[in-house]
């Protein structure tokens, strides 16, 4: 699978991780071109349904990036994300979907380098896992 081009979705919160991704850009930090960012106001607004929709219909991986715990622009929004995503991963594992295709991490507005690292490592991980088997399935 040398020509496998992973399709990855990332949810970034407006205040920390999206700003961190912007900083990575401003700093010209190079990374694989597989991650497509959807800007949301807070990582706590990422409905589990979005992630389920993406991974059951062929997206190879989903990143959910928020502010570090304690730094949430909306006080405690990311506390919910921190509980919700691991729970979702368990459910997906039960359903036979590899939960390694979903990754939760924290990137602050000052962490352009961390954003680069998270993206690069996640793309590598997805390459190792191979294409999402549900990619070819037509519902």
């Amino acid at each position: 699978m040398t020509d496998f081009k992973p399709s990855i979705l990332a949810f970034c919160c407006n205040w920390c991780s999206y700003a961190g991704a912007d900083l990575a850009g401003v700093s010209r930090l190079q990374m694989p071109p597989n991650v497509h960012v959807i800007r949301v106001m807070c990582s706590a607004s990422v409905k589990p349904e979005y992630v389920i929709k993406a991974v059951t219909q062929g997206i190879d991986g989903v990143l959910v990036l928020g502010c570090h715990i304690g730094d949430c622009h909306y006080l405690t929004g990311n506390h919910r994300t921190a509980k919700r995503i691991p729970l979702l991963q368990k459910i997906l594992d039960e359903a036979g979907i590899d939960s390694r295709r979903i990754k939760l991490d924290w990137v602050s507005a000052a962490e352009g380098e961390k954003y680069q690292k998270v993206v690069t490592e996640f793309v590598e991980e997805i390459r190792r896992l191979g294409p999402n088997p549900l990619r070819e399935v037509r519902f």
């Binding site: 979705l9 959807i38 949301v40 106001m41 807070c42 706590a44 607004s45 990422v46 409905k47 589990p48 349904e49 979005y50 929709k53 993406a54 997206i59 622009h73 909306y74 929004g77 919910r80 919700r84």
Partner: peptide
């Protein structure tokens, strides 16, 4: 404050955030 936390908490898709509705983000996906 427009954080959208309630949107994700709603089990019935009744709560929507203007400019970030579930249909809009769903269309992006």
């Amino acid at each position: 404050k427009g954080c959208g936390t309630c949107v994700a908490a709603c089990p019935n898709d009744a709560m929507q955030q203007k400019g970030f509705t579930t249909r809009q983000l769903g269309a992006m996906i």
